[in-house]
Design a protein around this nucleic acid. Structure first.
Length: 484
RNA sequence: GCACCGUUAGCUCAAUUGGCAGAGCAAGUGACUCUUAAUCACUGGGUUGCAGGUUCGAUUCCUGCACGGUGCACCA
């Protein structure tokens, strides 16, 4: 079908014409004087420079032609004059299209309007584009195509490229942050026989030679803790996790997680570390602690203030603030009535009391939070892998960091009692005792130092720092159904 | 999985109540020796996502399907 398209047919004809002239349309081995930004820096009138890039515009003046040559670093204008170059180059030039990749060599000069321009002396075809690029002014708008053919999005939408450059900077700076503090970056298995460390539906796969069913990890946690047992006292991993769940604005089936563990630290120390990390990233990546989020038209809808210190508050206090001072004095029935009538929540009758409270918390506290908030001392039912609070056994020593209505990072004082850990995992597994990671429990029995740990979803953090409203805008190739 | 919305030229978008499917960019031809969203003239380009239905007539109304978006559900 596409082969019938006249635009493609024409370009194929030009491709054939190039070959019949003995010009290879997909060249190799061109050495430019640098990236186009570097070429602009080296630009000096009458100097000879070489540049490589994609032709993105062609302004035809008859005998004079101006073209824009672009790469990710910038744009430079090149110039060809029909009477000042040989017939061979003119012929070659006629077969160029917008979108082609070329390498040129020529002399620097300034046009009368002062534009740095290279007058082409030789031109090498590097790659003929057989399909036209999206329109130059509006760029590529179709959301689906931007995800499916991300290269077109990156090529035509500067904003999109900035988002991914920021994401790259976030990962790079995160590594530097941890290395400066003596943390070791480690790699742990993605293929696991038991998908532990979180409660999520895993993907499964199979190893042929071993005849072994395997899962893709849902979290690296249980392996990082084995390393704490092994004496690596400060470790972190930036890793892809896989969860076989629904896709949404905030969920992609594969996503990138940062997890860090620090022996002898506790959840409060980890909260400090998270605060330092995120403010550092905001400073380096955004140059500011005021993060603006806007709607599609660029109107600013909210400003997140990351200035330290961040508020820390206990779970029960926050619930009382939002749901009423008397909330925990109410009967189970009264709470349900209030949740349904006043807070307009859907509360199914089979929910436990703590789940009713959690629903209220999510709606009234979480969704309303803009600036960073550490929620601490959660009820233990919500977080079974954390240490119990020394003064109140119904609470655990954890924080949940909330920014802009989203859970950004949970952190714990990690449970290191192997017997209690076994009990919690058993409670969680219920009937499915095969899901208990015995190797992990074995490791704990050798003694794991008390430690603080936390996890941050890199994707959601990138959303926060770039103002992206969808996780697909911060993942280069988000999962989509194949197009038939 | 459920609900709502969307899908028109290579790209960005129009199309009145159901009445000849259009524009800009891109493309082709021509003009122009400094343009830069170049300009000017002319030309080509469409199975309106796919399959049905209603109708004299469907981009428009109805049904089903595909893909996407948003919300819900799922998501220690």
């Amino acid at each position: 079908m596409d082969e019938e398209n006249e635009l493609i047919a024409l370009r194929r004809k030009k491709l054939d014409a190039l070959r019949s002239k003995g010009v290879e349309p997909f060249g190799a081995g061109f050495e430019p004087s640098g990236s186009i930004a570097e070429v602009r820096e080296k630009f000096k009138e009458r100097e000879t420079l070489r540049a490589a890039g994609r032709i993105t515009a062609h302004r035809d003046m008859g005998k004079s032609h101006f073209l824009d040559l672009r790469d990710a670093t910038g744009r430079i204008q090149i110039y060809i004059h029909a009477k000042e170059v040989g017939a061979e180059l003119v012929d070659l030039f006629r077969l160029l299209d917008i979108g082609d990749l070329v390498g040129i060599e020529g002399t620097c000069f300034l046009t009368k309007s002062g534009e740095p321009t290279i007058k082409v002396r030789t031109l090498r075809m590097l790659a003929k584009a057989l399909r036209p690029l999206p329109e130059k002014w509006h760029g590529l708008q179709a959301i689906e195509v931007r995800y499916r053919q991300r290269y077109l999005d990156l090529l035509t939408n500067e904003r999109s490229r900035f988002v991914f450059e920021k994401r790259i900077a976030i990962v790079r700076e995160t590594r530097r942050f941890f290395e400066e503090r003596g943390f070791l970056e480690v790699e742990t298995p993605i293929l696991q026989t038991i998908a532990g460390g979180a409660a999520a539906e895993p993907f499964y796969t199979h190893h042929k030679a071993l005849g072994l069913d395997l899962y893709l990890r849902i979290a690296p946690e249980l392996y990082l803790k084995r390393l704490l047992v092994g004496g690596f006292n400060k470790v972190f991993e930036i890793s892809r996790n896989f969860r076989n769940e629904g896709i949404s604005r905030k969920h992609n089936p594969e996503f990138t997680m940062l997890e860090a563990y620090w022996a002898y630290a506790d959840f409060e120390k980890m909260a400090n570390l998270v605060e330092e990390l995120i403010t550092h990233l905001a400073q380096v990546v955004c140059g500011s602690l005021q993060i603006e989020h806007g709607d599609g038209d660029g109107k600013i809808t909210c400003t997140i203030n990351l200035k330290r210190p961040w508020r820390r508050a206990r779970y029960y206090d926050l619930v009382r603030e939002a749901a009423g001072k008397d909330w925990f004095k109410l009967s189970s029935k009264q709470r349900r009535e209030r949740a349904i009538r006043e807070f307009k929540l859907e509360i199914l009758p089979q929910l436990a009391d703590f789940e009713v409270t959690q629903h209220v918390f999510e709606k009234l506290v979480e969704e309303a939070t803009v600036d960073p908030l550490f929620v601490t001392h959660c009820p233990k039912e919500l977080v079974p892998l954390a240490k119990q609070n020394a003064e109140d056994n119904s609470l655990v020593d954890v924080f949940e960091l909330i920014i802009n209505g989203t859970e950004i990072a949970p952190g714990y004082s990690e449970l290191n009692d192997p017997l209690l850990q076994r009990q919690r995992l058993l409670e969680q597994a219920g009937e499915e005792t095969q899901k208990i990671d015995e190797e992990f429990l074995l490791a704990l029995e050798y003694g794991m130092p008390p430690a603080g740990g936390f996890g941050i979803g890199i994707d959601r953090l990138t959303m926060l720092l770039t103002g992206a409203e969808s996780i697909r805008d911060v993942i280069l190739f988000p999962l989509l159904r194949p197009k038939k």
